Amino acid sequence: MGKPIVENITEAIYCSRKTICVISQHYLQSEWCSKDIQMASFRLFNEHKDVMIMVFLEDIPAKQLSPYFQIRSLVKKRSYLSWPQAVQHTGVFWQKIQQALKREENPAEHRCLLTGYQRVIQWLQLGFFFCSVIKLVTETTFFWNSFFLVVLTLLISFIHHFLRWHLTYTYYLFLAFLYDNKRRKKGIPHSYDAFVSYNVHDEAWVCGELLPELEGQQGWKLCLHHRDFEPGKPIVENITDAIYNSRKTICVISQHYLQSEWCSREIQMASYRLFDEHKDVLIMVFLEDIPAKQLSPYYQIRSLVKKRSYLSWPQAVQHTGVFWQKIQQALKREENPAEHRCLLTGYQRVIQ
């Protein structure tokens, strides 16, 4: 009682291992909730630890998040939980929150950090110090400092705009490469039989057709975004773990899939693993007929379609049994390229 609200918020965030943000329309309109998530985000990027769990209490369209830069930025980069999507699977929802709360990075180093304005003041003092140094240098060598500052700004802008994803992507690929080599040396088995890469617009087909057949009938263990991704983890890290912890990757390709940035990352990473390990680890399923000219802007998929066999759901509508049999054969097949045989789609099998 009697403490300033901002000081109470700061103390609560820095004296807790995690911060759970329950986001709704009312949350977005609240000034103090905005302070909460700003402070939690500051700690997240300062400590480089998974200290934030975002739970959306209702479906909020992306365009409504546009004025809220902090939340929009976090949603783009980090996994989150959605209560509306979990209504039918509340057990999985609470299990995901439990996993996120249990996850600890360097727990021995955790302590109650500086409370109140002390932490903020330290950063401000550091910032003022650097400003003073920069001012002193610019006063003595104004021209050269201005020149280098402009060049540095342009370079950072160029890297951020054009190479940011490539650098992040390369970093996680390197980690995945090290993890996969370690796993193979120790003989650790994969956690899943297949990771299913799909766009959210095609979730009805995945959950209504593919999931009941492959998990229910054939008994395979699949990895899905909404069910198996760990909340709080960076999305790229979740994708990397899913691909390298699975024997195969099934890409469910549609028009929506082609237009999705994250789906593009998933098939790029799966392709990298395919060409790096020289193993039969990728299964492509076209959910709709896409003309070759529409694939022209998508070099990665166009290259794969030219070199590798794929399955087509529209061609298999009359012969679904053959379609699921082909996927079963692909999942059973060992990852030895010498044993690779072309996957025949529905009609190709019937013609034979």
Rank of each mutant, 00 (worst) to 15 (best):
Y198P: 05
I290N: 05
H161G: 01
L65C: 04
H160Y: 08
R183F: 07
P4T: 04
K77H: 12
Q29F: 00
C131K: 11
G321R: 14
Y298S: 00
G346T: 08
E58Q: 08
M54G: 10
I243P: 05
S82N: 01
I283H: 12
N8L: 12
V350C: 07
I37N: 03
S132K: 14
K186S: 08
T345F: 02
D228Q: 07
P4W: 00
N181Q: 12
F69G: 03
Q122I: 15
Q255W: 12
V55M: 01
S309H: 04
V6Q: 14
Q348N: 03
I290H: 02
Q29P: 04
Y14N: 07
E215A: 07
W262S: 05
I71M: 15
D59T: 06
W83K: 02
V252Y: 01
I159D: 05
L175K: 14
Q315I: 00
K96H: 13
L155S: 10
S254K: 00
A176E: 11
R184E: 11
E213H: 11
N145Q: 12
S132F: 08
I301D: 01
L331A: 11
T10C: 12
K77G: 11
I23W: 00
L331V: 04
E31V: 15
Y299S: 06
Q218P: 06
F129K: 10
T19H: 05
R265C: 07
E47T: 05
D228E: 03
I253S: 03
C223D: 07
E288V: 04
I243A: 01
Y172G: 02
Y257H: 01
K306E: 08
F177Q: 15
S34V: 09
M52N: 11
A242F: 01
P337F: 06
L304V: 03
P297T: 06
L287H: 10
E11K: 13
F229W: 09
L126K: 13
L282R: 10
R111E: 15
T138Q: 12
Y68G: 11
E215W: 00
L210N: 02
L282A: 09
K307D: 09
